[in-house]
Write a protein that binds this DNA or RNA. Sequence first.
DNA 1: GCCTTAGACGGGGTAAACCCTCAATAAATT
DNA 2: AATTTATTGAGGGTTTACCCCGTCTAAGGC
Lengths: 215, 215
Amino acid sequence: MIQVCLVDDHVLLRDALAETIESFDECKVTGVAAHGKELQQIVERGVIPNLVLLDLNMPEMDGYDTAEWLFTHHPEVRVLILTMYDSEVALIRLLQYGVRGFLRKDIHPFELRAAISAVMKDGYYYSHRTTGKLATLFQKSYQENLPVERVMLSDMDIQFLRLVSTDLTYKEIAGKLNISVRSVDGYRDSLFDRLEVKSRVGLAIFALKNGLISA
Amino acid sequence: MIQVCLVDDHVLLRDALAETIESFDECKVTGVAAHGKELQQIVERGVIPNLVLLDLNMPEMDGYDTAEWLFTHHPEVRVLILTMYDSEVALIRLLQYGVRGFLRKDIHPFELRAAISAVMKDGYYYSHRTTGKLATLFQKSYQENLPVERVMLSDMDIQFLRLVSTDLTYKEIAGKLNISVRSVDGYRDSLFDRLEVKSRVGLAIFALKNGLISA
DNA sequence: GCCTTAGACGGGGTAAACCCTCAATAAATT
DNA sequence: AATTTATTGAGGGTTTACCCCGTCTAAGGC
């Protein structure tokens, strides 16, 4: 019997999903949480699931931090991401934390069941869409003769993108990060290049679409 | 028996929701659709529901257009908005189309049932949050001695916001709208004032958060 | 040791964004 | 007919954003 925990702040979807998963003979929902902190409490109480279905955008403690925590403290727990919009950024960041698969919320229930089965049987579940995105990413890093680390975003990049998606000027951003305006220029231009946008608005839109800021 | 149609492109939530609603004794789900076009087909086939639970961000035909279509062609059908994020813009636009209530997707199932009951019994359901937003809006229009139309966004504003949330320069935007760059300045400054932001990025963020562009 | 690479910073420049003031037109109000 | 109001847009200005050119330093590969 697969013991599943659901982590999503959208109660309506989460509870309905719990019923759907309970209807699968091979599964049992042993816990539901609105965000990472709640999951932590459940796990630390000794209820350790086999599989965690994890949303990304949540209050308190988001999916990234939750995946990282599970990876370092309970690596035996398999994590399946269930999110609104997928993105290369999410993909790369989460692969580092050993997540076993990615699902968009617009899938059909039978794909959910297939994904759960695959994760428990084969250890992972990557849809065509996911592998496609990964392939594009590695292809890009190969064509431009750059390591994958260059294509993906660092913590600094993400911190920077969060500030860019704000009414602050670059001068103010430089102040917040304790670096010079020229360094800000450098990060910006680097991101222009890698994210293939031409303006600050493009960066902000990218940050929004990739869930880097709470929409 | 209340006949309900569900319109949402997220199959997982929509189908789970259908089961939840079917479990309410007073309700029956007579149709599900992924977007407005599908709902149109259902209705034009003669299956006219009492209540439509409507998402806003959808492909093909979004919630706004769907609400407008229902309002003009089938005003007897009551519309209850079920969306990810609520916003003043959505509120004002949709009130024009006679929608009966607003629900965020992070509510509890019992609030959904209460809302459905209220809409069918009293004709509407406005949560404290909704009425709060409305109050703020009217208060603002009163304080600034402006008609509500001044506080809400025109079609031009929305069209403009969509273009602002793009890599295009204002010169290019002016070209697209067949107006001069100075007029663009005017629209921009007017929106700065009304939306209380200081930069183009602020406008883009606003547009995203209010679902004016597909995220 | 040397070489590359990445990060932080500067000079100096152009284009874009921002922000005033004012004015002509047309539609709506009175 | 007169007044307001909205729309559009011009002149002219400052600030910010964008994008080259560099240098220096620290970290890591061989």
